[in-house]
Amino acid sequence: EKIKSDFFELLSNHHLDSQSRWSKVKDKVESDPRYKAVDSSSMREDLFKQYIEKIAKNLDSE
């Protein structure tokens, strides 16, 4: 859970929106230790998708 929250924090530093693509974001964040803390690339992508869904819901509710 800490790894997930750290990863979300990392993503939040990059001002993403619901149109952001993992392939582009990954290049910007892959040197960060919070990125490396997530064991697998599929898990990183899953967390990215969860984060994008979360910010999309937040935008819808505003």
Rank of each mutant, 00 (worst) to 15 (best):
K36S: 07
S12M: 09
E62Y: 13
L59R: 12
D17F: 03
S41K: 10
M43V: 11
K49F: 05
K49S: 11
I55W: 06
Y51M: 02
D17N: 12
F8E: 05
K4S: 06
S5Y: 09
E62Q: 15
R44G: 04
A56F: 10
K49E: 10
N13M: 14
E1N: 15
Q50E: 15
W22R: 00
I3W: 02
F7H: 01
E53T: 11
S18P: 12
E45D: 04
R34M: 01
R21V: 12
L16T: 08
S41M: 15
I3G: 04
D27M: 13
D17A: 03
D6C: 02
E30F: 05
L59N: 15
Q19S: 13
E30C: 15
F7S: 01
K2Q: 07
F48W: 05
K24G: 11
K24L: 13
E9S: 09
K28L: 15
K28W: 11
Y51K: 02
K2P: 03
A56L: 07
K28N: 10
I52G: 03
S12W: 03
S31I: 04
K24A: 15
S20K: 03
I52T: 08
S61C: 11
D60F: 08
D6E: 09
R21K: 14
D17E: 05
D39T: 15
S42L: 11
V25Y: 06
K57G: 11
K54Y: 08
F8Q: 03
K2C: 03
S18L: 09
S61I: 11
K49N: 11
D17Q: 02
S40R: 05
A37T: 03
L47W: 10
K24V: 14
R21A: 11
N58C: 08
Y35Q: 01
Y35C: 09
S5N: 14
H14V: 09
I52R: 07
W22D: 02
K24N: 14
K28Y: 09
S42N: 14
P33G: 05
D60C: 08
E1D: 12
Y51Q: 02
E30R: 13
S41R: 07
S18K: 13
L10E: 01
Y35W: 05
Y35R: 00
N58Q: 09
P33H: 07
L11Y: 00
D60S: 11
V29D: 01
D32Y: 00
H14C: 07
K2G: 06
E62V: 13
D60V: 10
K54I: 11
E30V: 08
F48L: 03
S18D: 14
S41G: 11
E9N: 13
K4P: 02
Y35N: 02
E30A: 13
E1C: 10
D32I: 00
A37F: 01
K28T: 09
K57V: 10
N13V: 08
S42P: 10
D32S: 01
V29H: 00
K49R: 11
S12K: 15
W22K: 02
D60A: 08
S42F: 07
L47S: 01
K24S: 15
S12L: 04
E1K: 15
K28P: 01
S41F: 06
E9M: 05
L47K: 01
I3K: 10
K4A: 07
H14L: 14
I3E: 08
L10Q: 00
Q19M: 13
F7C: 01
S23V: 14
L10C: 06
L47D: 02
A56Q: 12
A37E: 03
E9F: 02
A56Y: 08
K28G: 07
E62C: 08
F8Y: 09
K57Y: 06
L16D: 02
E62W: 07
K26I: 09
S41N: 14
R44V: 04
S42V: 12
S18H: 12
E62R: 10
K2M: 04
L16N: 02
S31K: 12
S31P: 06
E30M: 12
S23K: 10
A37W: 00
Q19Y: 13
Y51H: 05
D39A: 12
K54D: 05
S40W: 00
S61V: 10
R34P: 00
P33D: 09
N58W: 03
I3Q: 08
P33K: 12
Q50C: 09
F8R: 02
Q50S: 10
D32G: 00
S12P: 00
A56W: 05
E30L: 07
E9I: 04
P33I: 05
W22F: 05
H15L: 09
D32E: 02
D27H: 12
F48S: 03
K54S: 14
S61P: 14
Y51A: 03
V25I: 12
F48I: 05
H15G: 15
K4Q: 06
K26Q: 12
K54L: 11
I3P: 03
D46T: 13
S41P: 13
K24C: 15
S12D: 13
R21H: 09
M43E: 11
L16M: 10
D17H: 08
H15S: 12
A56E: 14
W22T: 01
S40H: 05
K2I: 09
V29W: 03
E30K: 15
S5Q: 14
R21I: 14
L10A: 03
R44L: 03
Q50V: 08
E53S: 14
E30T: 05
K26H: 05
D27L: 12
V25D: 02
